[in-house]
Design a binder for these strands. Structure first.
Lengths: 201, 201, 201, 201
DNA sequence: GATGAATGAGAATTCATTCAT
DNA sequence: CATGAATGAATTCTCATTCAT
């Protein structure tokens, strides 16, 4: 809204974008400051004007990746008529940007191993799950409260859905030929839905 | 088959065990040949008698971790009376071993980002999923064929179960306070079971 | 001579004062243009309008420190009745601003190691000693010529006095608990005085 | 005495010697790890096997310089018949290796500015003064107790002597043409001696 | 087989200096 | 005059790998 956009913030984004591409191309452990500089067209020294050190840049990258991920997830406005369709809408949305996800998901995985030791990583990851689950709980609660779903703990159900989504993605990382993310996420969630659904008669 | 176990194989195991502990303590990216040598009590040069280079050692480590994981999973002899209880036995076994898993799981995650670029890593991970699913399929097929479960694709159902197990574990890595692996793996699988179960009447 | 002090000169002083504080706080080798800019409130570029480069700034700093030091020393108007008391007045004056000295003395010391290699530093330091000794020689010469002191070379005696003063200060830098500058400078000079004094009888 | 000399200690010495020469040639602030490596004929990496980092190497250098200095000072066995001649012997010895001193003294000076901030430097410098004074006190005490010198505090007198020696050296660093260390240290100490001496008659 | 001292290519980081605005 | 973002050469430091013993 301000007439002059903060150049500094643009630079950070520019650098993070370059870093993200570099990581997507070569892996987190092959990330080199030199290469980030090259890809931005900036000099190496400039990177250090915006990030204290390489570690700091990496963490900022993780945070940005998770944020974008959450933006996608939270942006799902369930305009669906019922919980079941809301959940399907959710899955559709997740499945739609599987392409983007595959580029950046390994970034998060690369950080899992330091999550125990680094509070900032820990915070970022925790917040991610928290918000992810928080996006799902209302849908499930609505279904349970309306009687569309069987009685259940909404958070546990949300965690089940999230684990199917994230777990399938993970299996897909393991084997990209065996797992088809769109299909298997859908079928997994359908199985859950089937279990959740109230039986008539 | 020789009565005398190859000393050389013992050495490899000794080294891999040291490396595994090192990675569990400090993360894959902080793995140093120096430290492996220290933890083994061997000299640095000796490591190179048993592994071509660091990369080779890391891959051997990944393979060993996945193998041990599979040994646990495949060792589950379903002596259960029906598919439902066989699945529960499976989950119980997985859950029992969560302590060990948490130590070594980040090792696999650390390799996910290389999987695209390294065929040997890719093979190891693929095989892991393949065998994991292969351990589940028979249980589900039996249930479906016996009419205990509703008609479904056994492999898809197996993938759903696997994704719940692995996905919950992943979420747990993200947030160890929010997720309780034993409880949430069980409740996730119960939701699936509920969906799979054939409705009577 | 212009009624209006040169703004430019004010800026230089402002910068040198900031630099002096920075050096006092963190040592000469930790002096950073960045920090001088910060402490001045000026921009880094501006520093280069007033000093050709960092080296130039450092030298100006040395010269200013030595000048201030000399101002203090030369400002001692010996209104004393005799040489002995003139010398005591000198010491009193030196001792009085030990607090200021301790802040800036390390600055000179930091330059000693460059003195061999840099003519300008050398000139500044030489001039300092020259004027320091020149401030003392008249006092000692007066004492010697009046018969108050024994026959001696006035310059050698002046150097002895200066070495006690500067040497005690140096020892004090080495160990601030063992040496008390005021007390030990005084006692050192008293020993010299005692030796200089003409014996009666 | 052990049949096999510790190579590791030799290497440290070798490195420190190279560093000392480098510092003597170009000043402490121009010390480069690269150059030390070149001068030793070792590789850069090797330096880091023996010293944690550059700072650590510098401190070891300071410690070695001060130790050698003290070895020289403490090695003065006063076989002199009286205190006065013992003191002269002391001065003679100091004066004799002025050549070596001039090479290494600026090293200590370079550290004075961080003495406030670094405990290890502080300890090294403190110990230096302590041992320096401790080498002088016995001579002066003997003279005072035997009645050769006038009543005085032996430590204060020792500090006076030390300040003349170190102070003259310092002035000499300031101006190498004006000060002749041998001559002016001698004349300074003679003035002190004259003051200390008991007057007859 | 085993050792561990030495290596050196490669990466991160620093900071005086410049220059377009 | 003043600015401060950008630079990049210079330096420190790391660590997998080798090899003489």
């Amino acid at each position: 809204m301000s007439p002059r956009v903060d150049v500094s913030e643009q630079r950070r984004e520019q650098i993070l974008t370059a870093a993200e591409t570099a990581v997507a191309d070569k892996g987190l452990d092959s990330l080199r400051m030199d290469e980030v500089a090259d890809r931005t067209g900036l000099s190496k020294g400039t990177l250090y004007l915006y990030f204290k050190n390489k570690h700091d840049l990496s963490l900022a990258l993780l945070e940005r990746v998770l944020d974008q991920e959450l933006d996608a997830v939270e942006g799902i406005t369930a305009t669906a008529p019922d919980a079941e369709n809301a959940l399907r809408a959710f899955v559709d949305r997740v499945v739609v940007d599987v392409e983007r996800v595959i580029r950046v998901i390994p970034i998060s995985y690369g950080f899992l191993s330091i999550a125990f030791r680094n509070r900032r990583v820990q915070q970022a990851l925790k917040q991610y799950v928290r918000r992810y689950i928080d996006a799902l709980v209302p849908i499930l609660r609505a279904g349970i409260e309306s009687g569309e779903f069987q009685p259940a703990d909404p958070e546990e159900a949300a965690i089940a859905v999230a684990s199917v989504v994230e777990g399938t993605m993970l299996l897909w990382m393991y084997d990209r030929t065996m797992i088809e993310p769109a299909r298997h996420i859908r079928s997994g969630v359908e199985h859950l839905l089937h279990g959740l659904r109230r039986r008539r008669g």
